[in-house]
């Protein structure tokens, strides 16, 4: 399974791809909307890109809990653990 550090790196690459800014400084505590400036279309695009990268689906309930970069990493890490156990 991917390490947390690898998940973090991949998540940040995906955020930069969605926003179109390869140099964006991203901190784990950053809010995706308030700090990094994602709009609603960007946010949905981000969910699609995360599913494409890591597999699985992020349903509405789960996505509503993703506020910060850290929330996103936590969610992916948990999903990968569950998938591995299955």
């Amino acid at each position: 399974m991917l390490s947390r550090s690898d998940i973090e790196k991949k998540c940040k690459i995906i955020i930069r791809q969605v926003i179109g800014n390869g140099d964006l400084d991203i901190q784990n505590g950053h809010s995706l909307i308030n700090d990094l400036g994602l709009d609603s279309v960007d946010f949905v695009s981000l969910l699609l890109a995360l599913e494409d990268e890591f597999g699985g689906t992020i349903d509405d309930e789960a996505s509503s809990q993703i506020i910060t970069v850290n929330d996103m990493i936590n969610h992916i890490e948990l999903e990968l653990k569950v998938a591995e156990m299955e």
Binding site: I14, Q17, V18, G20, L48
Partner: peptide, 8 residues
């Protein structure tokens, strides 16, 4: 083509 564009 940006990767994210392939998805949308």
């Amino acid at each position: 083509v940006p990767r994210v564009d392939l998805l949308r």
